[in-house]
């Protein structure tokens, strides 16, 4: 991929949350290594899927890209500009070009604001419309764009279902005409039938406005439906990144294989024949991760070297990167 094509370029991103002890005199006891030295890029118009279990640092990565959480180390280049060096005032301007859609549509809308008020806030902050009437027209246009009747403008969030609320959240993100949207598990809280509506909406909007997505989820089937490339994350590290077809057919990392095999298939006959890789145990704590490969405590291919030295991401051809000694 040519360098000028990259919209987002992340280099050695690190996010540590300090753990302090003591009430009056705070002592630094350790760090929660939520994101530990990861690098990847996203091209213009592309959807990169970021998959992993709860607590693997995928949401933290998304927020660190937008500088909603300031990274401990590393660089985030947005159109060639390093966001980690920008101050808050510069960032505010930049945020017009990048937005986020959160997982829980119940918690991400102000219950005391009507839909009109919710949608006018980004418009006012970024001075997108000149007059009040223009703003009202624009809000109605946004609402119909995401499939909400413009007549709902004076209604409050509690009057809407989960799927409709997620549409409002998407409309709010779109209000500033961004180029890049971080979708942080936008469909995990929704029913299957509503989930399909939201996925279709996101796909439609992408082709209409040439948007770039970072699509975060724990479910490979949803991610696969949306993404051009998929990155698999485990305990703060990227373990594999590949083209979506490639990852589905030729996943190499044991963790990716386990993730793929844990997706349920809607086919009883295949499901009964299928040999599942069931991972034992839970994800270790990121405050005290395993010394070598992060996955070594649950891996069935583990050898001595895995427990001692953490494997680097290696290119195995065709833009397919894997961090594992045993391929």
């Amino acid at each position: 991929m040519e360098s000028n094509n990259k919209l987002i370029d992340i280099k050695n991103l690190q996010v540590y949350f300090p753990i302090n002890e003591g009430i009056l005199i705070q002592r630094h006891r350790g760090d929660c290594k939520a994101v530990d030295d990861i690098s990847f890029n996203i091209s213009k118009g592309e959807t990169l899927g970021l998959v992993g279990e709860s607590g693997c640092g995928k949401s933290t990565t998304g927020r660190a890209i937008l500088q909603l959480i300031r990274p401990t180390a590393g660089h985030v280049y947005f159109k060639g500009e390093d966001l980690t060096k920008s101050n808050n005032k510069e960032l505010r301007k930049k945020r017009r070009e990048m937005q986020i859609v959160f997982q829980d549509p119940y918690a991400s809308l102000n219950p005391r604001a009507s839909i009109g008020e919710i949608l006018s806030e980004p418009i006012e902050v970024h001075k997108i419309c000149k007059s009040k009437s223009e703003k009202n027209e624009y809000i109605k246009e946004l609402m119909s764009m995401v499939g909400l009747a413009p007549g709902f403008i004076a209604r409050y969030p509690h009057e809407f279902s989960g799927g409709q609320r997620q549409r409002i959240v998407i409309a709010r993100a779109l209000a500033v005409k961004p180029e890049f949207i971080v979708c942080d598990e936008p469909v995990s809280a929704l029913d299957v039938s509503i989930q399909a509506q939201i996925i279709n909406l996101l796909c439609d909007l992408q082709s209409k406005f040439f948007l770039t997505y970072l699509f975060i989820a724990h479910d490979l089937s949803v991610v696969r439906h949306m993404s051009n490339r998929i990155a698999v994350m485990y305990l703060g590290k990227l373990v594999e990144i590949a083209d979506d077809e490639e990852l589905y057919h030729h996943a190499q990392h044991p963790y990716s294989l386990a993730l793929l095999s844990s997706v349920p298939l809607a086919n009883p006959k295949e499901e009964k024949l299928r040999k599942r890789i069931v991972l034992e145990g839970d994800v270790p704590s990121p405050t005290n991760p395993p010394i070598g490969c992060r996955f070594s405590t649950r891996c069935w291919r583990v050898t001595d070297i895995c427990r001692e030295v953490s494997p680097e991401l290696k290119d195995i051809g065709g833009g397919h990167f894997v961090a594992c000694y045993h391929l």
Partner: peptide
């Protein structure tokens, strides 16, 4: 059934 995103489906 059709609304399910399938891991074995086409992008």
């Amino acid at each position: 059934l059709n609304a399910l995103p399938r891991v074995d489906g086409k992008r």
